[in-house]
Amino acid sequence: MTTPTTPHGTFRPAPGAAPFATQVSAQARMETRLLLRNGEQLLLAVVIPLIVLVGGVLAADRVGLDFPYGVVDTLTPGVLALAVMSTSFTSLAIATGFERRYGVLKRLGASPLPRSGLLLGKVGALLFVELLQVLTISLVALALGWSPDLSVGTVLGALAVVLLGTAAFASLGLLIAGTLRAEATLAAANLVYLLLMAGGAVVIPSTSYGAFGPVTELLPSGALGNGMREALLHGALPVVPLLVLAAWAAVGTLLTSRTFTWE
């Protein structure tokens, strides 16, 4: 076998970083591809929320659960919230935990991509995956008879809840990924997701939790779920949930910036 050679001058140095926007978009596309390629994360992101939605509608019919609004109308905003939580919190935490473990963050740390670019790339990937989730879940919900309270105001309100919810949960996800080992992150992120899904007022309104209800309103999960319901079910501006989410985002970002280690 001969060793291949290349013409003289091929490797002549020509260093330089790509424009920041190019780097961020490359990073976002890469992270999106990897998120969508991972079967478990897809399960978490789309399949579980759909099971909750369809299963909830069927179960409510059977046991005659009585909500003041229609079952699909009550459940869908919460299921959208659940999907946002699964991506911005669980998927992000697990992916980042393993990026640390496999030296990806270290490798990218030696590339021209600055940390702000890496974070923006991650946010871009999260928002794109969330868009796909919202489209899928909304289509299924509409097929089940969902009739949301749609106006410019409610859509903007829901959008604000999704964005602030993403910020809050992403900062908390990074907090876990940046401090625990990869396996511990995997376990913790899934456990917290399950606990919040069951007891965090994401899908079921805070009012259904009895005395525990006011507490759930202060959880990021409760604020995300209640905010989506206030916007899409009651057509109201979700002021309190937005404030709660903003507070969580601020606390999460502060803690993460203090504790996150890249290796």
Binding site: G16, A18, M30, F98, E99, Y102, G103, V104, S111, P112
Partner: peptide, 23 residues
């Protein structure tokens, strides 16, 4: 050792790093 996503393909990873550079 390490330095790449566990699910990434070799050429895909290389293209990504290339895209962060100007030339």
């Amino acid at each position: 050792d390490g330095g790449a996503w566990s699910g990434v393909r070799a050429v895909e990873m290389l293209r990504h790093v290339a895209s962060l550079h100007a030339h």
